[in-house]
Amino acid sequence: MTKNIAESEIDVNEEGYLTDMTQWNEAVAEAIAAEEGVGPLGEGHWKVIRYLREQQEKGAALTIRSMGKSGVVTTKELYELFPGGPLKKSSKIAGIPKPVGCI
């Protein structure tokens, strides 16, 4: 399915996660963040978003533990930046698939 996000037609799944990460841009991120009640996006958010996209390109499986150890953000900061579901919300905003792990 497609959804109009930041004035462009974006391919998303039924939960609103982008199915093609190349369709992502910063305006799309801002729009999803607003919908998720996150932000306005500051440097802290962008650092996490960029890191998530890099990891996704490498095909790494993301966990909350690996995020806390990344050096990009501490666990506490991650929860403060993306309240109500840190890994899920940040992944959605970063335009990458929903994390599937339990950790």
Partner: peptide, 8 residues
Amino acid sequence: ANGARMEG
């Protein structure tokens, strides 16, 4: 517990 926090 950790899984719960991850879901908000």
